[in-house]
């Protein structure tokens, strides 16, 4: 039997099976495309989260360094600081997730940790010469924080 004769013969072709095959292939393709999009988005969110953490971390270290400089120059010139207070506003959620900020006095790091995402830990180091930063952990949903210098203990408190 020649193959050419077989080709127009559609006796063994079922419309329903053809439909099922086409449909399942379409569904599979859609699922693949969607899930790849999802993972792409997830990666993009992590990148953005890390970027934002670094930006906010640097912002906080600038404030800490400012207080340190002001205290250092005042002490050198024989002045006394009675109060330094900075307001700090940070977003409650970054890329849709709340996060925590930990100030570690031993390693001198600000550790940003996003909720439910293990990959998005960002450590921003800070340095102080004249004052110490008290170790503490902040939770992002509060949004408004205060960085204050305590003259009696010569420490920076963040709450």
């Amino acid at each position: 039997m020649k193959l050419r004769n077989l080709h127009p013969d559609e006796n063994a072709v079922s419309i329903s099976i053809g439909f099922i095959l086409t449909f399942s292939i379409t569904v599979l393709m859609l699922v693949t495309v969607l899930s790849s999009f999802y993972s792409l988005m997830d990666q993009a969110q992590q990148t953005v989260t890390r970027d934002e953490f670094e930006i906010h971390g640097t912002d906080i270290t600038v404030r800490i360094a400012t207080i340190d400089t002001i205290v250092g120059s005042a002490t050198n010139s024989g002045s006394e600081i009675m109060e330094i207070t900075y307001k700090l506003s940070l977003p409650g959620k970054i890329a849709g997730k709340p996060y925590s900020i930990e100030f570690d006095n031993n390693t001198k790091d600000i550790v940003f940790l996003s909720d439910e995402r293990d990959e998005t830990i960002v450590k921003v180091p800070y340095y102080t010469d004249n004052v110490a930063v008290l170790s503490t952990t902040l939770y992002s949903l509060k949004e408004e924080y205060v960085i204050t210098y305590e003259p009696t203990t010569n420490t920076i408190q963040i709450f």
């Binding site: 002045s79 006394e80 009675m82 109060e83 330094i84 900075y86 307001k87 700090l88």
Partner: peptide, 17 residues
């Protein structure tokens, strides 16, 4: 003298011999 400076996001108070 004691100098106090205040803006929307910071407050500094210090003396100045």
């Amino acid at each position: 003298p004691v100098i106090t400076m205040h803006s929307s996001e910071m407050r500094i108070k210090r003396n100045l011999p």
